[in-house]
Design a protein around this nucleic acid. Structure first.
Lengths: 127, 127
DNA sequence: TTTGGTAGTTCGTAATAACAGAACTTAAGA
DNA sequence: TCTTAAGTTCTGTTATTACGAACTACCAAA
């Protein structure tokens, strides 16, 4: 394998090696599931740094970098370096082919949960 | 709260406090997702010790106890002590009401993955 | 072609969580 | 009452995670 400099090349697993447990583990982290959900709803590739403020507070970039690496190595996203930027998109078509409605139903439930929480937070505020 | 002896009482979260991330975390462990899948397919409550050999090797009972506690405290299963035994069943109806098809699609994908792996193991053996 | 800045990665380490053996609780039966 | 069985809790060890600091890679302006 060709290495340019000291950085590891980006590696993506073959879809046949992607596991249900791996995906669930990746999604069990609130930052990662959120990144995936937003990536899935985006129309074009997104760069890593676009998610620095995803939690409200500023995330350390080393942490963000690790989360993207986990999403990538789990098989959920495809990353490509363009200049200094890391461009990302989900592997949704392949994932759907392999895991059926699983991922969509997870993200659907996640989005619904957030909507519910927002509502109840508003309610609390009003009191 | 009434304590009988020194053991903590079994506590189950309200379904409204159960989270998507929590469920995914619980399922990200191969032993736990397997326990849940088997519990879901069982027709009656199952005792904890029924899963001692679930991995092929004998599991330490402290480990098994912890896994059941996590499934319970995540909101996935309902446990009840009967004598010295712990009887368990899934909270599938409530879960479905709250999370829609999510859990069924996860367990479906998990079962399919196992079937696929079994097949390819057989294939390997034949060679 | 140097200099400076930006985007992201890797390394080191401190905090955190998981695992499993040992000791314990509880209950049931001889 | 003694013993055994089923789980739980405690505890030390091991493995993971998170984040700051140092680093690489690339680009653009001087």
């Amino acid at each position: 394998m060709l290495y340019i400099g000291n950085m590891k090349p980006l590696s993506h697993p073959k879809m046949e090696d992607v596991t249900v447990e791996g995906i669930l583990y990746a999604f069990s982290n609130p930052i990662r599931i959120r990144i995936y959900a937003e990536l899935a709803s985006a129309e074009c590739t997104q760069i890593c740094s676009a998610y620095r403020d995803i939690t409200g507070a500023k995330l350390p970039k080393s942490t963000l970098s690790q989360h993207f690496a986990i999403l990538r190595e789990t098989g959920l996203i495809l990353s490509e370096r363009k200049g200094t930027e890391l461009h990302n998109k989900t592997r949704c078509a392949e994932l759907k082919k392999r895991f059926g409605p699983m991922i969509e139903s997870i993200i659907g439930a996640y989005i619904e949960q957030n909507a519910r929480n927002k509502k109840s937070a508003k309610k609390k505020k009003r009191i």
